[in-house]
């Protein structure tokens, strides 16, 4: 990715070097042609037709009708809203929490690395296992969570079935599942900070918050950028926990864009409309990726590196 390209100009490639370089790329290119370029072109083609797999009527070219349909589709807009909630939770909850935790763990003695790995357990277990675990935790009648809340006299919410709590319940799972991953990235970034810079700042008499805001945060910016890039774009893909825990309900309260596209494509088999939804997501994701990559650029570190 261009953002982390070194500052040196690209060396001119000789013929042999060029051939060798392309040979190494060949398997990737072949695979991407089949499994990325083909599906995209296919989706693009289907998205301008009224192709419905289950209707024995030939599909016709409908131009941009499938794209126009999203404008007046309330379920599309509510799914956009749900998707935005997942993104907002990443930016405003997961990232700050992860930064705090990374600092907390970074200050631990020897076993900091082990602690971060233990914390990573929610991230590395399968999302369907996560769904099962939380189905247990959120169980209205037999779940440990409601039992403890009951002891504290805080009532018995129905969590994933409640119109107001269903989305927050899923956001909580997403937080639990992915904040540790952000902690790992930020912790790796913190460990790679040049110790002499921090030391010098401390000797200068800067207090902790000055060191954090003026030195650490700017130095961490590329890592934070990478973390945001990965997680914001990943949150478009959130699917498994919705599929397992709420099936998009109650009503459409937890139907995000990915789930709605799945319903249109694989339950109603409106392939034309589902493809249009997919293309829209791809465009949005690509634009966002371009923008976020800007954040990962390394600041000028000439004086310390």
């Amino acid at each position: 990715m261009h953002a982390v390209v070194r500052r040196k100009p690209a060396p001119a490639l000789s013929g042999a070097r060029r051939r060798f370089a392309w040979w190494l790329m060949a398997p990737t290119l072949a695979m991407f042609a089949a499994n990325a370029v083909f599906p995209l072109l296919y989706a693009l083609d289907v998205s301008v037709r009224n192709y419905q797999l289950l209707i024995p009527i030939p599909a016709q070219f409908v131009g941009l009708a499938n794209y126009a349909r999203v404008l007046s589709d309330p379920l599309f807009w509510s799914s956009v809203e749900v998707t935005l909630w997942f993104i907002a939770a990443v930016v405003f909850l997961q990232l700050p929490a992860a930064l705090g935790l990374a600092l907390l763990f970074n200050g631990l003695p020897r076993w900091a690395g082990i602690a971060v790995t233990v914390l990573l357990v929610p991230t590395i277990i399968a999302p369907s296992v996560v769904g099962f675990q939380w189905a247990q935790i959120y169980n209205y009648q037999f779940g440990p969570l409601n039992y403890l809340l009951g002891l504290a006299g805080l009532g018995h919410p129905v969590w994933t079935a409640s119109p107001s709590l269903a989305l927050p319940s899923l956001l909580a799972i997403d937080f639990w599942e992915w904040t540790p991953f952000l902690v790992l990235l930020l912790f790796a970034g913190l460990s790679a900070l040049p110790p002499d810079v921090l030391e010098a700042a401390r000797v200068d008499g800067s207090n902790w918050s000055q060191v954090f805001w003026r030195i650490m945060l700017p130095l961490l910016r590329p890592v934070i950028g990478i973390a945001l890039l990965l997680r914001v774009l990943m949150s478009f893909k959130t699917f498994d926990i919705i599929y397992i825990l709420t099936a998009g309900g109650p009503g459409a309260a937890t139907e995000n864009l990915a789930y709605y596209t799945y319903i249109q494509g694989f339950r109603y088999f409106n392939l034309g409309y589902a493809s249009a939804l997919a293309i829209i997501q791809l465009v949005v994701v690509a634009v966002l990726a371009k923008a976020l990559i800007g954040l990962t650029r390394r600041p000028g570190l000439a004086s310390v590196s």
């Binding site: 289950l54 009503g251 109603y268």
Partner: peptide, 23 residues
């Protein structure tokens, strides 16, 4: 009839929305 799974699923979605109080 043909389409029944679609008619029924969409009905279920809207009945569920009414039960959830959002409509």
């Amino acid at each position: 009839i043909p389409g029944a799974p679609r008619y029924i699923d969409i009905l279920d979605l809207y009945v569920n929305q009414a039960l959830a109080g959002s409509l």
